[in-house]
Simulated assay, not measured.
Amino acid sequence: MKLFIIKIGGNVLDNPEALKRFLSDFAQIKEPKILIHGGGKIATKIGDQLGIESKYVNGRRITDAQTIDVVTMVYGGLVNKQIVAALQTLNCNAIGLTGADGNLIKATKRPVKDIDYGFVGDVKADGVNTVFLHALLNQNVVPVFAPLTHADGSILNTNADTIASVLAVAMSKIFEVRLIYCFEKRGVLMDVNQADSVITHLPKNLYDDLLTKSVFADGILPKLENAYDAIHSGVKEVLIGEATDLLKNTGAKTEGTLITL
């Protein structure tokens, strides 16, 4: 049986109309499905309103004690529950979750090396409670994950792309999984300045070749790394594409970039 694991973030979450369209499409998917969302820009905005400055190193958020409180409130509360409430109006029986709920995703706190990232979690597929997750799906309940995990009694900020990849790997033992990363571009681009230069199929040998030629922009690299981690660990397909193409990308004829071995 197919399972769609879908990650949404960035500009779609910040745009109420775009989010409404996306959730309407998501609700129409008949097969079992799991949604993972981000919310970094919203957390930054709320933090600013509370006088808590967001700090970044190499584009990654430093999650100190004040910041973990903000992201827990925003990701696990505001954003997650707004999405769940919207899905309920679309007859999609969603449940909002973090990794702490039902011990669904255990993590380890990122060790301090050159940089102390604070309350940040690293996750692996063997930390996923697949039995409980499968039970929810069997009840036609749709899990909606905020990008939060847990370890030793602490909530940890965790990259949403990585959570999606790890969930896909874990659930690929039970389902035929297609992992879909939705964002504002049409797919992985050969030329970042040409919106229509989409690479429709990116097998590993082509990826390795283009990587040596520095074709990929920095922003897409973490998604590609997570995609190939998933593919090498049992996930059948990964699709990176535009949020507006979600329904097409759950079918046989996809838009965007399809990643396979």
Rank of each mutant, 00 (worst) to 15 (best):
K2C: 06
K2F: 07
F4E: 03
K7H: 07
G10D: 10
N15F: 06
E17R: 12
L19I: 07
S24K: 14
I29P: 12
P32N: 13
G39V: 00
G39R: 01
G40M: 06
K41S: 15
A43K: 02
A43P: 08
K45C: 00
V57D: 09
N58M: 10
G59M: 11
R60Y: 07
A65K: 13
A65F: 01
V70Y: 04
Y75Q: 11
N80H: 08
I83C: 06
V84L: 13
A94E: 12
A100G: 01
A100K: 13
G102E: 07
I115L: 11
I115S: 10
F119Y: 15
F119E: 02
F119M: 06
D122N: 14
K124P: 00
L133A: 06
A135K: 13
A135N: 14
L137I: 09
N138K: 15
V141F: 11
V141Q: 12
V141G: 00
V141H: 05
P147S: 12
S154L: 11
D161M: 02
D161S: 07
A164M: 01
A164Q: 00
A168E: 03
A168C: 11
V169Q: 13
K173V: 06
V177F: 11
R178P: 04
L179F: 10
Y181D: 09
F183C: 11
L189E: 05
L189N: 06
N193Y: 10
D196N: 14
H201A: 12
H201Y: 05
K204C: 01
N205R: 03
Y207W: 13
S214K: 15
V215C: 10
G219D: 12
L221H: 07
K223N: 11
E225F: 03
A227N: 06
Y228H: 10
D229F: 12
A230Q: 04
H232D: 15
S233V: 02
V235C: 10
I240E: 01
G241N: 09
E242G: 06
T244N: 13
D245M: 03
L247A: 07
K248W: 09
K253Q: 15
L258H: 03
L258I: 14
I259G: 08
T260P: 00
